[in-house]
Design a protein around this nucleic acid. Structure first.
Lengths: 213, 213
DNA sequence: ACTGTAATGGACTCTTTGTACGTTTATTGA
DNA sequence: TCAATAAACGTACAAAGAGTCCATTACAGT
C-alpha cells in the first residue's frame, strides 16, 4: 500500500497528457477543467479529487521537464577543471534536452500571455541594442551573430532586474548597473579574474560592490 | 474634436489606476472586471466600452512603463565611445527607472503565476551553479557576489533558450551551447574582440557559428 | 469474496463574463 | 445659451465555468 493505487496513477497520467495535448493546440488560459477531463475521458469532479486547479496540474508537468534541464550541470565539479569545457558541455546537454522537449519549453517560456510581455520587453531592448550596434563601425565584423549578442545583453538586463526585485533590491541602482555592465560586457570571468577588466574598462568608475557583498 | 473626450480620458485613467492599485494588493489573476470598475467608481458595462478584457487594460499600463525602460539607451551612439561607460550609464538609467516603478515591474517580471515558473527555473539553475562555485577552490574570492554571478549565468541560459525557441531553433544545439558558454563566460566583448578568447579558452572547440550566421 | 477506496453521474449554487437597451448626464460647437 | 452628440448609468439577462456534494458503481489488494 506504499505505492500509489493504479487507478490514481492512471487518472493523473491521463490528466497530465490531456493538458499537454490541449496546450499544444490552444491557449493555456482558455483551457477549462471541463476541457481537460473531457479529453482525459474522466468526469470533472474527478479532477478535484487530485488537483485544486489547473496551475497545480501544470506544475507537476513542468517539474519533470525542468528536472532534465539541470541534469547536465550535476557533473562533478572536478577541481582540475577547464572552465569553458565544463560550461560548454553542460550547456550542450541543456540545449539538447530543450530540443527534444521543444514543445513543452515553448509553453514554459513563450506561449503564455504573461510571458509574452517579458518576451516583448526583451525583444524591444534587443532591437534597441542592435540599432546601437549597426551605427557603430567597430561592430561590423562580429564573430557572433548580432541578433544573438543583442538578445544576450537584453536577457542579462532582464535577469538582473528580475533578481534585484525578487530580493527586494539589496544593492543600489548604481551598484546593479556596474555589475550588470561588467557581466554583460566581460562575462562571468570578470568576477573570477578581475585583472581582465583593466584592459578595456578605463572609463569604469571605482567599484562599490565589494563593500556590500 | 480631434482630441479625446474628457470623460473618456477620465474613465480610462480611473480604470488604469484601479487596476494598478488592485494588483498591488492581490493576485492579478483573481481580479475581476467587477473589482476594477468598483474601485474606479464606474459601472461594469462601462469597462467594455473601452477594453475587451483585463489583459488589454494591463497592456496599456505596461506599455507606458516599458517605454521608460529603453529611454536610457536612446543616447546617441557617438563613435568616440567608451563601450563600458555607455553601457554603464544606460544600465544605470534603467535601474533607476525600475527603482521608481518597482511595484509595476514586480508585476511584469515576478508576481504572475506563469512568470513564477520561469523565476523558479532560473533560481533552480542559479542554485545549481552556486553549488558548483562553492565546491571550486578558485571561486573563493570572487569580486562580485556569488549570487549575482550565478543568477547572471542562469539568466543568460534562459534568455538564449527563449530566443532560440522563438526563432524556431535557427542554430544547432552545439552552436547554441558554444555561443552561450562564450557569452556567459567572456561577455559580449568576446564577439567584438575575439582575441580575448585565446587567454583562457584553451579547451574550446573550433567555432562553428560563423559559417551559419 | 470482502473491504476500502477511486471514479462515476448527476445535480446544485455561486461567481463572472459579455451583451443589451433605455435613461441620464456631460461635452462640444454653433 | 441651447441643441446635438456621445459617454456613462442602471439594470437585466443568458451562458459558462468553478467548486462542492452524494449516492452509486467499478476496481485493487488481502
Amino acid at each position: 500500500m506504499n505505492e500509489l493505487d493504479p487507478r490514481v496513477r492512471r487518472t493523473r497520467q491521463a490528466l497530465r497528457e490531456a493538458l499537454v495535448a490541449l496546450i499544444l493546440e490552444q491557449n493555456y488560459d482558455t483551457i477549462t477543467i471541463q476541457d481537460i477531463t473531457e479529453r482525459a475521458g474522466l468526469r470533472r469532479a474527478t479532477f478535484y479529487l487530485h488537483y485544486h486547479d489547473k496551475e497545480e496540474l501544470l506544475l507537476t508537468i513542468l517539474q519533470s521537464a525542468v528536472d532534465g534541464l539541470t541534469g547536465g550541470m550535476e557533473a562533478p565539479p572536478d577541481t582540475e577543471c577547464l572552465m569553458y569545457e565544463q560550461v560548454y558541455h553542460s550547456d550542450l546537454k541543456m540545449f539538447l534536452h530543450v530540443e527534444s522537449n521543444a514543445s513543452l519549453y515553448h509553453i514554459i517560456l513563450g506561449r503564455q500571455e504573461t510571458n509574452q510581455i517579458i518576451q516583448r520587453v526583451r525583444m524591444y531592448i534587443a532591437a534597441h541594442i542592435m540599432q546601437y550596434f549597426e551605427h557603430d563601425p567597430k561592430m561590423n565584423a562580429l564573430s557572433l551573430p548580432v541578433e544573438v549578442v543583442a538578445n544576450y545583453m537584453a536577457g542579462v538586463k532582464l535577469a538582473m532586474i528580475s533578481w534585484w526585485l525578487e530580493k527586494d533590491m539589496p544593492y543600489s541602482p548604481s551598484q546593479m548597473a556596474e555589475m550588470c555592465a561588467r557581466l554583460s560586457l566581460d562575462g562571468a570571468l570578470t568576477a573570477v579574474l578581475p585583472e581582465f577588466r583593466a584592459n578595456h574598462l578605463q572609463g569604469a568608475p571605482a567599484s562599490t560592490v565589494e563593500t556590500v557583498a
